[in-house]
Write a protein that binds this DNA or RNA. Structure first.
Lengths: 193, 193
DNA sequence: CTTGCAGAATACGTTGCGTATCTTAGCGCA
DNA sequence: TGCGCTAAGATACGCAACGTATTCTGCAAG
């Protein structure tokens, strides 16, 4: 047969497939990722894919998960404002690596559980990171001592995610606006004893 | 041929098609709306559909636009808090009429321009309505006189839309929480002279 | 009337889905 | 070393939907 006499197995095969998925994604976009195309590019066959992934959303999500740097370093710039801006910029960067069309496609295709995973991929625990950033500001006495609910902590990241998903890529200026006009005032006001 | 000897034209035909789209949407969900199925149900043919609509997203969006009550009445409950809660409840109602899956599907399929229209369908000018509601509160002296930016006015509707699109249907309690914990405090704080 | 044409219907080729079937390679284990 | 099990790989099938080429027909202008 063609040239190869050896046959990939297990993780090697899986890695090859995910590599092919990323290439197809790059070349044809999310809607253009097909089982046929991936099988062709990975030099394997559809049953091999179906045995491992139930849908295109699962397949693409696994490929992206394997590709993206797994952990989002929590910025520590010394001020709450700086932390928030850095966090939003990191979110935007990760989001851009994946692409809005891909995220929207996965969100549309996926079930509830997969949808949650998909959002964690780009916003890894964005709400929790926001909370810890606020906590840090509270610890250093930058803001008041009152408890700040998770909903409030996550306002900046939710506003940004909204724009990332539904509008054009936000500018640096827009990120600063979100923090200065909405996020920071609300957090400071809430934290006031 | 079957029974009809007369041929529908123009608006009559269009209305019949859109009716069929809504029926297909109801029966099979957004991914199940197909040109073939709609043509069958509307007793017409695919070229007729393709001549009028470029994609399923356009087709479904037109059908929904024709079906939904066109204008969102602006609530006036006498207080800013009541107005905001009523507005969010209206948004949730309209959104539920369409269905999260449908909105997510359209958002994923559509180009930038259509995406904007799709969101206006469920949130008709939600940001502007928010602004007018805040303006009313300012006029009656309920909040301070300082200018409240559109971004701040729209925080409640953006938070809600985020949940509508990405999570389960929010409860009344959740809506109240969004208003009381995030939206209202931020608006009041911003409006303070 | 009759005739031109937009609009309607049929039919076709193509693509992707998801699965069934069968062959073959590699790996573990005695 | 050889045996058997598991999984990879190839092929092909039936189905559904896409998008369009082609043909036909009702409608209105002249």
């Amino acid at each position: 047969m063609s040239t190869s006499t050896t046959r990939r197995h297990g993780d090697a095969l899986r890695a090859g497939i995910l590599r092919a998925v990323l290439d197809e994604l790059h070349d044809h976009g999310y809607p253009g990722v097909t089982y046929d195309g991936v099988a062709r590019r990975a030099r394997t066959s559809k049953p091999v894919l179906y045995r491992r992934w139930r849908s295109r959303a699962h397949l693409v999500l696994d490929a992206l998960t394997a590709e993206l740097p797994p952990v989002l370093p929590i910025p520590d710039t010394g001020s709450l404002r700086g932390d928030l801006i850095a966090l939003l910029q990191l979110m935007r960067t990760r989001f851009a690596l994946v692409g809005a069309q891909t995220i929207r496609g996965i969100v549309a295709d996926a079930d509830d559980e997969l949808r949650r995973v998909a959002l964690e991929l780009t916003d890894v625990f964005a709400a929790e990171i926001s909370r810890s950033v606020v906590q840090r500001a509270s610890d250093r006495g930058e803001i008041g001592p009152a408890h700040v609910p998770l909903l409030v902590c996550s306002v900046p990241v939710v506003l940004l995610r909204h724009e990332l998903l539904l509008a054009d890529e936000p500018t640096d200026q827009r990120i600063v606006e979100i923090v200065d006009v909405a996020g920071l005032p609300l957090i400071i006001d809430t934290a006031r004893a």
